[in-house]
């Protein structure tokens, strides 16, 4: 993946000047845990716990973190596929936190999702033509010919042959299926695309193709990405800015260069030290974290990371640090800074 040339510098500079597309304020998504005889809510899984960040127009924000830290829940909550427990989601300044019904359906035109599992994300009873034309049918009145032309155009943009139109999902490989999913997300010319680990289910050789396709399309359609992944090298390749999540919290958010050059949060440092080095002579200090991720149902008091942090102090278990701008554009939630 690292072989692919990067050209994020220019995009990022443009991104910084541009206006905010998505503004997340104190977002919380809790899953209720039902139990007992009457199925009462006995506890909450705090999948997303007090998250705030912004995405500017045209930029790519990467979101990394280990399994179960709430990355996918964040993505789905922003798309309002899940109901947020608290907080605000502002899309182009418009509050979409509490809209529902037809209002929400209309709003969906502007934000789409590319899903993680290319096998489960395509309806097995629909042909590719049906899958890609469905969003268009939902929002636009088009004649059959216009529709087909549009779909064929979309298919060619994502690198699929026109023959794909009549085929079914099961006749394609994982990478091709992911292209179909991308074409479906693109059909409505959305402003924001949330890519929820779009390549984690693919072969490494296919991953870079799909990633490059996503990059090309970003320029072509003027897209903004929220790119969710657990593979640090993938995120590095894709993103202008990167947010690091731990146990439903954002612990650090910074520009790509700044984060990799100088990770500030102890968790980020541990993550980055875990990236395999291609050059065996370059031995580096591997920070190995002790213990497991605490249960999001009963997160630790204070800083969520203090139970595993090699630099934890006594007050870490008492005060929950807020995100602080330590350097321009580099925010970190840790009492060390």
């Amino acid at each position: 993946m690292n072989k692919v040339e990067t050209k994020k510098g220019s995009v990022q500079e443009k991104g910084l000047e541009k206006e905010t597309l998505l503004d997340i304020q104190n977002l919380k998504t809790y899953y209720p845990v039902k139990g007992g005889f009457l199925k009462r809510t006995v506890a909450h899984v705090k999948a997303v716990d007090d998250l705030s960040f912004q995405i500017k127009k045209g930029e790519t924000l990467g979101l990394v973190g280990e399994s179960g830290c709430g990355k996918s829940t964040t993505g789905r909550t922003i798309l309002r596929l899940l109901k947020p427990t608290e907080g605000k989601i502002l899309f182009e300044g418009k509050d979409i936190t509490n809209i529902s019904g037809s209002q929400l359906r209309k709003a969906r035109k502007d934000f789409q999702m590319v899903f993680q599992d290319p096998y489960a994300s395509l309806n097995p009873t629909q042909s590719v033509g049906d899958i890609v034309s469905e969003p268009l049918k939902n929002f636009k009145k088009m004649s059959k010919n216009e529709l087909k032309e549009e779909v064929l155009d979309l298919l060619s943009r994502v690198g699929l042959p026109p023959e794909a139109y009549h085929k079914y999902g099961h006749e394609f490989s994982g990478g091709q299926r992911q292209r179909i999913g991308i074409a479906r997300a693109l059909a409505l010319k959305p402003k924001l695309i949330i890519a929820d680990e779009p390549v984690s289910a693919l072969d490494v050789s296919v991953q870079s193709q799909v990633l490059n396709l996503l990059k090309e399309l970003q320029g072509e359609f003027d897209l903004t990405y929220l790119f969710i992944a657990h593979d640090l090298s993938v995120v590095k390749h894709m993103s202008d800015r990167i947010g690091v999540m731990y146990l439903g919290n954002l612990v650090e958010i910074a520009t790509n260069e700044s984060l990799y050059a100088e990770p500030l949060h102890p968790y980020t440092q541990a993550l980055i030290s875990a990236i395999p080095e291609t050059d065996p002579s370059k031995r580096k200090n591997r920070i190995v974290l002790q213990g497991d991720v605490p249960s999001p149902q009963n997160p630790p008091s204070g800083c969520p990371f203090h139970t595993r942090c090699p630099m934890a102090k006594e007050e870490c278990s008492k005060i929950k640090p807020a995100l602080k701008e330590v350097k321009p554009g580099h925010h970190v939630a840790c009492i060390l800074y």
Binding site: R76, L81, R108, S121
Partner: peptide
């Protein structure tokens, strides 16, 4: 299945 989420997100 994710295709149900996809169907909702494309405005069905």
């Amino acid at each position: 299945n994710e295709y149900i989420l996809a169907a909702i997100s494309i405005g069905c």
